[in-house]
């Protein structure tokens, strides 16, 4: 028995070392640009040997933990490669003068400083917040009203549900171009040959309308689910007690679907923050603001996400775009954290 354990430990040791050596050699070859075709195989065998060695480590105490780790590893690895590493790299890039091709030097906080001195960016943040608030209210109110309609006993409510939900199935870019045509070619006759999209204020309204049209049906569907889950006996009891429909709505239905309202509020909140495709297809951010912080702005309808994209792509300053993206990430992270907090406290109440 003892010899077997020793054999195991020797084997484990050899496998671990061999695995690491193969791994490092394969990676080193890739970094140095060798075209040796066997390096992929080396990498694979290195990893297998390493894990085999890890599994065979002669310890009773930690054996289970090692097995857990081995099973978790594929997920952790994928998560790291697709989420953690890009995040860290992205934050790193925001401190350099990265051009998308190469980095020549570290610039410290210069990207962050320049971004807060840029009136266009501050304007983008402001209109994004305004847009988010307006949308959050409008979409929820309209979605809820539609849901009430579709759960009432009107005829063909199934048809209406499908019809209101349909716009959500069309991609944002396509939707943007469709509505661009509507505003520029159809409605133009009513607006005296000045397209609604050519003035910043009306163009912003247009984006709100299109977004509402796209997203209202989706939120409606969630409210419908909430409303149909309100227990029938409660409603019946209210009816017998002589509650008016208004009382039923405000005293019974709305309190019963409070958690649905929270979910919908935050769904609309985060998705409105990340608004990009409709914005890009409909106006691409164009619009004039004659005097904002002493500057003439050309990005009258540019939301935050589009501003980041344009900074990186159209202005070719990837590093500043990256810095803006980091700020965007922080804003969204804060919003999501608040969301989690509030929904948790709601669950306790119920």
């Amino acid at each position: 028995m003892k010899t077997k354990a020793q054999g195991n430990s020797a084997l484990s040791f050899i496998l671990l070392i061999a695995g690491i050596v193969l791994l490092v050699a394969a990676l080193a070859m890739d970094v140095m640009g060798t075209k040796f075709a066997g390096r992929g195989a080396m990498l694979i065998f290195g990893i297998i040997a390493f894990f085999a060695g890890l599994y065979l480590i002669p310890t009773m105490k930690h054996h289970r933990k090692i097995v857990y780790f081995i099973f978790l590893f594929p997920l952790l690895f994928t998560f790291a490669v697709t989420v953690i590493i890009p995040l860290v790299l992205g934050i790193g890039y925001s401190f350099t003068d990265w051009t998308g091709v190469k980095i020549t030097k570290f610039v410290g906080l210069a990207n962050y400083m320049s971004m807060f001195k840029d009136p266009a960016f501050i304007y983008s943040i402001l209109i994004t917040f305004v847009f988010v608030i307006i949308n959050m209210v409008l979409i929820n109110v309209i979605g809820f009203c539609l849901a009430l309609l579709c759960t009432s006993s009107i005829k063909a409510s199934g048809f209406f549900r499908a019809a209101y939900f349909l716009p959500n199935l069309i991609g944002g870019i396509v939707l943007g171009y469709i509505w661009q045509f509507v505003f520029n070619n159809v409605l133009i006759g009513m607006t005296n040959h000045i397209s609604l999209l050519s003035q910043s204020k009306t163009a912003l309204l247009c984006i709100v309308v299109v977004y509402l049209w796209q997203y209202g049906g989706y939120i409606m569907l969630i409210y419908i689910t909430g409303l149909t889950q309100v227990p029938g006996d409660v409603l019946e009891a209210a009816n017998i007690d002589g509650a008016t429909p208004m009382q039923t709505l405000f005293q019974i239905k709305i309190p019963m679907i409070a958690s649905t309202i929270t979910i919908c509020t935050f769904l609309t909140l985060t998705s409105a923050f990340k608004q990009f495709d409709v914005n890009m297809a409909l106006t691409n951010g164009a619009g004039s603001v004659p005097n904002f912080m002493g500057a003439y702005l050309s990005n009258g309808t540019q939301m935050l996400a589009l501003n980041i994209y344009n900074t990186a792509i159209a202005k070719n300053s990837y590093a500043v775009g990256q810095a803006k993206a980091v700020l965007f990430f922080i804003i969204l992270a804060v919003v999501s954290l608040i969301q989690v907090r509030i929904s948790n406290s709601k669950e306790v109440e119920l």
Partner: peptide, 9 residues
């Protein structure tokens, strides 16, 4: 475990 690491690798 071998199969999983192999596919991952």
């Amino acid at each position: 475990v071998g199969a999983m690491t192999l596919s991952l690798a």
